[in-house]
Design a protein around this nucleic acid. Structure first.
Lengths: 205, 205, 205, 205
DNA sequence: GCATAAGCGAGACGGTACGTCTCGTCTTAAG
DNA sequence: CTTAAGACGAGACGTACCGTCTCGCTTATGC
């Protein structure tokens, strides 16, 4: 994927072709799902030989990962930082509500489902996903939480990875397993309870 | 699957065959993964005609779901209730640690990954999964939380579905996306923070 | 087929069912051809269990033979004798023209093609066909030719089987191989030349 | 089969593969009969993917036709002309006796039966057969008869197609329907009577 | 008159083959 | 040396039938 070994001579990789393949792959997975995506279909639609795809990607998992990456990072420049207004709960709620909106977009939903399905089964792909998509995102989230810790708003003893999971996993899981409605209200409730806890404080004796 | 229409005459479904198919399907998915499971392989290994599988299951998704169900509910009678010692945090931690142990068992891991991957992409299968596996489990969890609410240990205003997600989704997600280590310690930390919250209480001015 | 082993007690074969099966088999072979006829289809259309067919016929060849037999001999009582007006050529031409007409009837054409195809490949079925359909017909034809021999109209030295083939095979072959048009004129020309020969008599020197 | 559309680029059809498929198909039909021939078996025995067969032939009928053609025309160079010694009866008898010998060869018998059975039922295949096998043979036969007509040995008014059928159909029919013994004597008797006729000349008054 | 032995419909079952689709590799011609 | 085109061996897909095997009736003897 995107690997461009140092070739000295001969024709060089055509970036237009690469873009066409990734765009087509995204469209196909959005339209037909991951199971419905085949290398042949992508090649045919992109007007490209199959070998050209096999030359640069080891399989459809890697292809779809690249396609999703290209779309997410390529498209919107992607804010390199989470909002930090000083109000932790409001900032996190905004981010999570935006995530819900994204997961609700039909094309993204299908594409991401494809990628997610592949990741669950394929450890190597999961590693790549962590490295290229989830890892960077997680870093941003942890940075915001660290800032809150420094501001004395967050328990300094909390493991930030656990904190990130606690805030973001519930919504992700609802989406992937369709175990319940996925609304901004739910997102906000999750943030609220994640920060403040579910349990009542011990009653004042 | 498990369809039992009112048939007037004719030979009846052979329960031995059904069991053999489900056991084989579980083994195959545990061994080869979901993508590596083919109806042909299951039929061949189970010594069964392909049509016999297609007669009773619409596809490999439903087959694997049934296979996992049969294994989980069939095997250990499945405690019909979560532990309730009065100590909510300890009870939930025990359950979550047990979950971690289960997800760490190689055979179960592979089988469940297969099922999960299928569920992410197939809405109909997700519905079945909710109905037959996740739904009942969630009901047990909610029952335990309700009991805690009645004991005044849990915020009475919390949406129990959100509460369940907050407690159980982080571990599930770590497992499925391999986004971090999956240890009893993590499980316990998740329960602790879910109940008590991540944020520091407003500092005494 | 039509086997009735010595049974002492119990229910007897239902003749209505037998007739329904044969009629359905004829219809199916006329509609879908021999390759398109399946025992399942016949059973379903006739409202009969498959076993009922397998109980009485060894396979679809025998079934179709019986179906065609039932239709040919059952229908028109079947003139037990070929016409004998004294004019051999005219009589044979009439018979052959009638044959052409029959082979031209679409339903009969398809059904007979199915049977013929089966016969070409299946020696046992061919034997049955000779015994039950072709044999009796051939006997009638030979009887007519013998009568002509006695009337001094036919070479007494000719092998009657060869004579029958010479007269009837050309039309049958045109039909089965579709090697040329199948018209009354052709039929009449065949009879004429079969009787009088193709060669010119040696010219009077 | 033998389709050669104007393709611009891409790998070309492998003639070795084609030959292997046709040879295998002939062997299989000779061994197991037409009904016993399956595309899967041919593919497996020829060490070829099924798709490679389906790519070039529409079905087993066309495949067997090509296989028989390859064997007949490929093998013996195939005399491009029937013998013409001036003695019409002897020449035709020689040809028909050779035909009998061929039809008596077990491998050829089974293969040809398969093809014949398919032809009887499949009009499109029959057309191909006429065009590629029967047609050219018939042309040869008609050429020989025409030569006899010019030599004044054959009725100039006779339709040559009818003449060919009269001479060759009786033997072909005996073979396909197994309606009688198939010997050189029968072949010679057929030729003799076809040329001289079955009927006695009107007695000298 | 009633047991008993088929006949019969329905349809599950272990199989085989179908014809299609996709896989990943390989070959060819064009650029 | 890359590319588009596409043939190739392999093998799974889901469907259709095969012929056999229960099932649970129904229906005629023949004791």
């Amino acid at each position: 994927m995107t690997t461009a070994p140092t070739r000295s001579t001969g024709r060089r990789r055509n970036p237009t072709t690469r873009a066409a393949i990734l765009a087509t792959a995204f469209d196909v997975v959005a339209e037909l799902g991951y199971a419905g995506l085949t290398i042949e279909k992508v090649a045919a639609r992109a007007g490209v030989g199959k070998q050209t795809i096999y030359r640069w990607w080891p399989g459809k998992g890697a292809l779809v990962l690249d396609a999703v990456l290209e779309r997410t990072t390529g498209a919107g420049a992607e804010a390199a930082e989470l909002p930090d207004t000083g109000d932790l709960e409001a900032d996190l709620a905004d981010v999570l509500v935006a995530t819900v909106r994204e997961l609700t977009d039909p094309a993204f939903d299908r594409a991401l489902r494809g990628l997610t399905a592949a990741i669950v089964e394929d450890a190597e792909l999961a590693r790549l996903y962590q490295e290229r998509l989830d890892g960077p995102m997680r870093e941003l989230k942890k940075r915001r939480l660290r800032s809150a810790q420094e501001a004395g708003q967050l328990d300094p003893g909390v493991d930030l990875d656990v904190a990130v999971d606690l805030i973001f996993a519930p919504v992700a899981q609802r989406w992937s397993e369709r175990s319940g409605p996925l609304t901004p209200e739910v997102a906000r409730a999750v943030v609220r309870h994640a920060l403040r806890g579910l349990a009542l404080p011990d009653p004042p004796r």
